[in-house]
Amino acid sequence: MSTVWVWLEHSDGKLVQSAREALAAAQALGSQVVGIIAAGTPELVEALAVRAGQFGAQAIIATADPTLESYRFEPHVALLRALVDAEQPAALLAGHTLRGREVLSGLAGSLGVGALTDCLSLEWSEERLVAVRPAYDGKVLCRAVLRRGTVQLATLRESAFTAQPVPDAPSPPLQWAEAALAEDAIATKVEAFAASSAEVDLTSARVIVAGGRGVGGPEGFGPLEELASVLGGAVGASRAAVDAGWIPYAHQIGQTGKDVSPELYFAVGISGAIQHVSGMRSARTIVAINKDPNAPIFEMASYGLQGDLHELIPAITQALRAQLADR
């Protein structure tokens, strides 16, 4: 029986989306799915454990300690190292977030084993994990295998796996573990945290409305924002629009920007240069809107609308509002 652990990243008292997705990936791989929760207080651990159970965790190993309240590399890596040494799981998964990749790579370095990061798919082959993951800046893919190491580590591309709520799941049993490092053994101190006010959470967005050079200027992004807000989505951009200074860098998708895999992607006034496409081609459904009928973006889209985006986008927003109001 293979036991697959999931490092359950959380923020603001909630499991992050990629942690719920990793629980689904673990269910597909393991017969026993164990969530690992490290948090500042036992109350928070217990609340997160209930949520983890609803997304497939069958048991929880948890540590509540003030040293784990704000994210720091050292205490999290040391804790996972101690837990892995004690329990020897077959595999440990996490979302490929900034924290997830640091912690799992650090654990791999600590154990002297390999890790597969940014996995688009994951499967067992003769008891070794095999992943499809990007190479060469996402311009190609590779299939890679973990050859050595008792525990097998992988981080998962956000939105590449689909979270599966488990209805009526019992609350998973909790096993408590001690923190591995005392505060005075941790040199790194968090002095302050400034939550981003207008968070651009492109990587976990279900819908993205992205604009390119065809949008024409900073004011052109207004209608895209409106469409995104009706759909509960986020606004993205091509490098051309970011370089022109029309929209901040945080919105950039593609090479030198973010890689995204939403369910629905609107490419608005985006021609489809390889640098952009490498970051969004794993979107499930692409709607291309462009005035040039020969724009390469149409070749990869499911739906295409040829015409003036300045007329089409407000019209789509209006049609959506009418449709959603009818429900």
């Binding site: 992050v16 994210y71 720091r72 790194t188 101190k189 968090v190 002095e191 945290f193 400034a194 981003s196």
Partner: peptide, 11 residues
């Protein structure tokens, strides 16, 4: 971090 900016000191 995805959720904001941390100010940290280390050795």
């Amino acid at each position: 971090l995805e959720q904001g900016i941390q100010t940290v000191s280390t050795r």
